[in-house]
Amino acid sequence: MAATTSDAGTRRDFLYVAAGSVGAVGAVAAAWPFIDQMNPSTGALALGSTEIDLTAIQPGQQIVYKWRGQPLFVRRRTPAEIESAKAVDVNSLPDPLARNANLPDTALANDADRATKPEWLIVKGVCTHLGCTPAVSTPQIPEGEYGGWLCHCHGSEYDTSGRIRKGPAPENLAVPPYTFMTDTRVKVG
């Protein structure tokens, strides 16, 4: 092999590094479409809203709907349930934030900021611990100590405002974006 002078060697190394780095940048850029294709498609993103007719729901009853592939709890609360939710001091809660998509992220978990219309509590039925669906508490079949929900997977307990009170879940049940079209019709999403 012909001996190369150090000068030629430097130039060769520079070309290697340049071509190699440009090629590497290209490879990384080319990888992005193959990663991004696994994100929700524009079709999935567009299927966001569900309209719910509330007339059939009795006080004290909860109906589960499917919204964006997950359970959605719509609960018509009794005056007693509303009262017990209002009586709680927000600062004593494990999660003091409202987690309400209709309000700023900093809103506090006062019951009025969890349920805009006090009678109607609308939350995602997804335990904030590891995603199970919590069981609803009724006077006949109580679930947990707080009259709201109990998640049987790992024992997280929620109150009648859907706020976490006990157990491993870190956050209150999420309130999805919704608007009341009429007094008895709500559009979620």
Partner: peptide, 13 residues
Amino acid sequence: ETIMRDVNYGWLI
């Protein structure tokens, strides 16, 4: 056609 229209970069792939 969903791949071509809605999947991110589906048309490219």
